[in-house]
Simulated scan of single mutants.
Amino acid sequence: MTTFDSSRPPEGTALAATTVRAVRAWQLAPQPAGHAAGLPEPVAASAVAPAGPAWAEHRTRFAIELVADSVSGWHAPVSETVLQVIVDDLAAGLIGHDAAAPRRLPYRRRTGRHRAGAHARQAVSAVDLACWDLASRDAGTAVTDLLGGTVRSHIPAYASALGLDPAHDAAPESAAWITDAGFWGQKWPLTKQLIHAGPKTVAAVFGSLRQAAGETRFMVDGLGRCRLDEAMRLLPVLADLGVFFAEELLPPGSWGWHRLRSAGAGVPLAAGEHAIDEGEQIRLLTGGAVDVWQTDPGWSGGLARSLHTTELAADLGMVTFPHGDRLAAALALAGACCRDKIPSVEWHLTLEPLRQQVFTAPWAPEKGMLPVRTTAGLAALPVLPEATAVLEVTGS
């Protein structure tokens, strides 16, 4: 029987220009406190203080660099915990990997036991996205071209108002501004206060927002906060409001999720961003558990995995709305798909401007649209405050 070590090429094999020679980490500036400068006044009027600066993953964050002969691939930001998983489990096996061969990446040697869970999947996703960035920069072409061709040059964005208080007196003004700004739709949080106040209060608050929003699509995100009985009582309210979808009223896959799904009430249920492992993704997609699929290339295993589940969702009659945590990857995914598969991507009104501060050329919506990157690289290069890398792993 012939065996081979997938972590290194056969003897005498010439290494491609996209072969990874080293893995480096660069420390980024922490997320600043407060909101980003220039937040539109109608949005700022009902905005709540961002929680991110208190989170360890936002205080200490890094960019990873995959170094080839004449070009590097980048991904940012990653938390300290995710970086440690990359160093412990993935970095050594990446040395000698050809970033232009994405189907070989899952077979690279691993040196630790981190195989599942949120941080392990974020680490795998970060490496996958850095490889796409490297392959794109070496080829001098857009990532969408590597995915099979650029289908769309601009993608509609829906406004995520999760950083706004839906019960604030200024919230209807914010809802009206979102519509006037040209966003594809708007999504509002179902806060704990509203859940505890009950269906009548939810109907009054969201009814006011729905009226102010006009004819635009209106979505609700429960953030997994409801009990089953609370979610069941809210379904008729959301149906009366004509919500386009209700996201994670309960934690997807929990014991009450299928009872909620079977209740129906004409409310499409959305989930997927927290389905990080392959088996969980397939169970949600094929088990009749969701009506609307949400994938996050930064959490779900990377860009290739997200494209796979998007195609599967389309085959099953579902549209996909990529989660907004990794906007560059979401736009590349959407740019390689038609609008029937991915109608829109998420733009977080208060958080995304803070996320974009780590890049030298940040994205910003114009008339509710975001451009697909048509030049090399998944995203613009990260802003590196330090002159030297804080960590480097090379081959022996």
Rank of each mutant, 00 (worst) to 15 (best):
R110N: 07
E392R: 14
H196E: 15
K367Q: 14
T320G: 01
P322T: 05
W184R: 05
S70R: 14
S125H: 02
E352Y: 11
D128F: 01
E366I: 11
T144R: 02
F244W: 12
V71F: 01
C226Y: 04
D165K: 00
A76I: 06
V390H: 07
E57F: 11
F245N: 00
S160V: 03
P322E: 02
D165E: 14
A361M: 10
T179H: 13
R104I: 01
A270H: 07
Q186N: 13
I155H: 03
H348P: 06
D88T: 09
G302F: 04
H97M: 11
V23S: 05
T179A: 15
D229M: 05
E173Y: 05
Q357D: 09
A304Y: 00
P362Q: 11
R210G: 05
R8N: 06
L331W: 02
P10Y: 10
S70G: 14
A54F: 08
A54M: 10
L285H: 02
G93Q: 09
A68I: 10
A47V: 01
I178C: 12
R21V: 07
D128R: 00
R261K: 14
L327F: 05
T191Y: 07
E65I: 07
V82Q: 02
K187W: 05
I178R: 00
S254D: 11
V237C: 06
L164I: 04
E392P: 06
V220I: 15
W177T: 01
E57A: 11
V290G: 00
A14W: 09
V151Y: 01
G214Q: 11
T3S: 12
V151D: 01
H308L: 09
E346K: 06
T216H: 10
L238Y: 00
V20K: 12
E41C: 00
G163F: 11
A263S: 13
A332C: 13
A25P: 03
L234Y: 04
F4T: 13
T201E: 14
T394I: 11
A63R: 01
V87R: 15
P236S: 07
V85E: 07
R108Q: 15
Q294R: 15
T388D: 15
P9D: 07
Y107H: 15
T19H: 06
H114S: 14
A101S: 15
S72L: 08
G214L: 07
P353D: 00
D325P: 12
Y107Q: 14
E247Q: 11
A364Y: 10
G395C: 02
D325V: 14
L235H: 03
A29N: 08
P77L: 06
T141E: 11
P166R: 08
S125A: 09
L241A: 06
R108Y: 02
D296E: 15
P102A: 04
A100E: 09
G140Y: 08
Q211L: 10
A176F: 08
V82L: 07
G96L: 03
G198H: 08
P32I: 00
A246W: 04
